[in-house]
Amino acid sequence: MVEKKQPKVQVRNLTKKFGDLLVLNDISFDVQAGEFLCIVGPTGCGKTTFLNSLTKLYEPTAGEILLDGEPVDLKKHNIAYIFQEYSTMPWLTVEENVRFGLDIKGVEKQKANKLVDEYLDIVGLTKYRKYYPDQLSASMLQRVVIARAFATQPELLLMDEPYGQLDIQLRYHLEDELISLWQRTGTTVIFITHNIEEAVYLGQRILVLTNKPTSIKQAIDNDLPRPRKIASPDFVKLRNEVTDLIKWW
């Protein structure tokens, strides 16, 4: 990848210990503005700890994370985080859930209405806007969460195995939807998964992590043309390459 001006995200010597247990070991990397970065690693390698440290939900033990050259401040920077668990609020309707981030950020009402309408439409939930989460299927819930994240027009979107709980067909569908949203909005995405195929399908660049204590094993550029074909020889070749990196422990 050609160096651009200032990287969107700079992670410098990120280290996290829980007591004596070293989970993240001196991780450094950059993410360019508008990049779609996938991070893969073996299960239990601390991927979630990694994202949570990145967003300061966990206080890092050492190191720093800069967004546009400044330390991450959730109150100032516009970040959205899509969690592995279902995270819709059961007491809010679909549209209220999508509005949640906008309300927190104090977005003016008319503008918020417009954004909610727009993103409900994009994820195909306009018909269900008055429904409550317990009336929706798993894939619809995940769409609500994606609409909620994109509605705040984040400069950085973090995703932690968002599709881990979905069956394969829905996953393909939502992955394509995600790519088109990303292309449309130009937001920077860090996407964590343990699913190698998913990483190769989505990422412009793939960071492969090691087992605990976690560090970066290798970064791989992925410029396969989109829409990607999971059965094409190039795709399979790259997938095997990543698989070998992960298998080696």
């Binding site: 109150k75 100032k76 970040i79 959205a80 969690f83 927190i104 950020k105």
Partner: peptide
């Protein structure tokens, strides 16, 4: 915890977390 995290990453204040989550 996840609901609180959602609020926090959107930049919610402690007060907002209490009243909205």
């Amino acid at each position: 915890q996840v609901h609180l995290w959602v609020g926090k990453t959107f930049g919610a204040t402690n007060r907002q977390l209490l009243f909205k989550v």
